[in-house]
């Protein structure tokens, strides 16, 4: 059986790699095979960041174009940029809170309106779960818990290969202890948004 492929995209500093490690380790703990790819270095200075995960049997951690099962987009523009990894069968979880590229003033193309992004994502995927994860995270206690809001929301996607308890355990094993209450709250709020 083909491995379950998750593509996570966003902007440096949003906690994407951490989120991916939480998912990957949770998969390992449940006895599943898992591989993951991450991009470090120059990409982190405000540039785009993406990770790729395959849960199940696979040798390469890179997702072939058009074969992603789930796209978790931490930023709307980065959802559009990830489209080649997706197909009409892909589930999408998308944060609606924008981060403008620093050079957007000088950019040839403007930042597209959110409605247009949502419309396009909807037309090219199985379904889109859109949420303002930044707002939810801030309400949960800290803007940086936004990645756990996204993870909680991703858990509601049909076919997601991990359960809530495993994910929460993995979160606790990977995040600083003092942040656990806020991150748990953020996770639960993300989960409750689509349950």
């Amino acid at each position: 059986m083909k491995a379950y492929s998750i593509y996570i995209s966003g902007v440096g500093g949003q906690g994407i790699i951490k989120t991916s490690v939480v998912i990957g380790e949770a998969a390992m703990k449940t006895g599943q095979e898992v591989v993951m790819s991450e991009i470090h270095g120059m990409a982190q200075r405000g540039g785009g960041v993406s990770t790729e995960l395959k849960i199940g049997h696979a040798h390469s951690s890179i997702i072939a174009d058009g074969t992603g099962d789930l796209l978790i987009a931490f930023e709307p523009l980065e959802a559009l940029r990830a489209l080649p990894k997706t197909s009409k069968n892909t589930h999408v979880v998308m944060n609606t809170s924008k981060i403008l590229p620093f050079n957007i003033q000088a950019s040839e193309h403007p930042y597209p309106p959110l409605e247009d992004i949502l419309k396009e994502m909807n037309s090219k995927s199985k379904d889109v779960k859109a949420l303002d994860a930044v707002k939810i995270a801030t309400q949960a206690g800290h803007i940086l818990s936004m990645n756990m809001v996204m993870l909680g929301a991703a858990l509601t996607v049909p076919g997601f290969p991990l359960d809530k308890e495993t994910l929460l355990d993995s979160m606790k094993a990977n995040l600083p202890e003092r942040t656990i209450p806020i991150n748990t709250r953020a996770f639960e709020e993300g989960f409750a948004t689509f349950r």
Partner: peptide
């Protein structure tokens, strides 16, 4: 598939 709308770059 790819985006129908032009996507501004996000350089570091």
């Amino acid at each position: 598939q790819e985006s129908d709308q032009p996507i501004p770059n996000r350089p570091p």
